[in-house]
Design a protein around this nucleic acid. Structure first.
Lengths: 209, 209
DNA sequence: AGGAGTATAGGTATAAACCCCAATACAGAG
DNA sequence: CTCTGTATTGGGGTTTATACCTATACTCCT
């Protein structure tokens, strides 16, 4: 939680200043961006940011909603709290459907905003825990050779070594060798554990949230 | 899609009539309720309804939001489209966060409402497909004896038969017998398939959507 | 040319899982 | 009380999977 920062993306200098003041009152660091484009083009790995994003909807250049959708596509971004001065219901609905954790109207209640930031931090913490787990497994998967991946895939499909040998047109001994290396590289001590990893990755790939 | 109906829950007779007219113009059947309480108390299995729910927010008795949350808790309800004449952004956000697929303001655009209903039908169709799959697996799980469930649980944890025998303080032969019956009852021809079923159920239990 | 990494294959031995069978014990339902 | 379902145990044999070893061949990089 110490590393958490509040990324404020708003074209209004006053709003950014007000938020900065509010956040610093409880010891939170604020990083400002005056447009969505600036945030995107800044040299930082979005996946490694810790904290949350306060994002204005209406801005010159890329809109807040567009940035929100962009962040959801690349995944593993910090949680986003939308802020708007002239928002309407369809806009708020769209934002929440796109993954924003809340939609707050300006002028905002200070305590409400702080509460939302804290909630966002919690969500971020949980999300980063999951992302670390996913990354760990993906790193292991990447260490597999293409042949080993083929064997792994067949194994997760429930195929026996003998069947896999026929499918890949290699001998059963070779399949066994590959399979053993797969278990070793994936750090799985049982097929059940291996399946849990694979299915975890499968689900994280198709279900964004 | 043929069986799909539109469940309208709104205290205003005029609104219900207007929706009924609109829906019947494209051949959709409408079932009316003048309050959330009436919907809840009506003798129907909510999990078996097909179609979608048009739900007013402000009503005498149980509020639309309260009903929405109630529906999400028991799960497997048809998708809900919230409708409100005097809605605000916090209300809309809350509704979407609670699982409503949209939040439409009265007076509504007719085509927009129809589009939403069609989208809801698609979501419902997908959701019911998933629910059927879950129910199928749960039925198999329920056919297991308590001992078989213990063995199943240990197996999914990656335990070997020998280890399971020690844990349950029974002989390895017995474990093998239970395990064979588990595979048979679950209709799994491989451990991989069994794991997929179990993890599917695990995920559906903790992640509502 | 030599080394690392990968893919391939064979061998031997052990362990684990699967299959079919038979049998005892016990509790609850009819 | 008998019948049924469940839980338990065992044997014997087959099939799979693991573990550990060796070995060849090919490619890529140094």
């Amino acid at each position: 939680m110490d590393e958490c920062k509040v990324y404020v993306i708003d074209d209004s200098t006053e709003v950014r200043q007000a938020i900065k003041l509010l956040m610093s009152s409880i010891g939170l660091e604020v990083i400002e961006f005056e447009s969505a484009d600036e945030f995107v083009n800044t040299d930082h790995d979005i996946g490694k940011l810790e904290g949350c994003i306060l994002l204005d909807v209406r801005m010159p250049g890329m809109s807040g909603l567009a940035l929100l959708e962009h962040l959801q596509q690349i995944k593993c971004s910090p949680p986003v709290i939308m802020i708007s001065g002239h928002g309407d219901i369809p806009m708020a609905v769209k934002a929440v459907q796109a993954g924003a954790i809340n939609f707050i109207e300006k002028p905002f209640n200070e305590q409400e905003l702080l509460d939302n930031v804290h909630r966002a931090f919690k969500i971020d913490s949980i999300q980063r825990g999951k992302n670390m787990k996913i990354q760990l497994i993906k790193n292991r998967l990447n260490s597999l050779t293409s042949r080993e991946k083929e064997v792994l895939y067949a194994v997760t499909e429930g195929q026996r070594n003998k069947a896999i040998a026929v499918i890949l047109n290699i001998s059963q001994s070779t399949v066994e060798a590959h399979r053993a290396r797969v278990m070793e590289k994936m750090e799985a001590s049982s097929l059940s554990q291996l399946m849990r990893m694979i299915i975890y990755i499968e689900n994280s790939d198709i279900e964004p949230e």
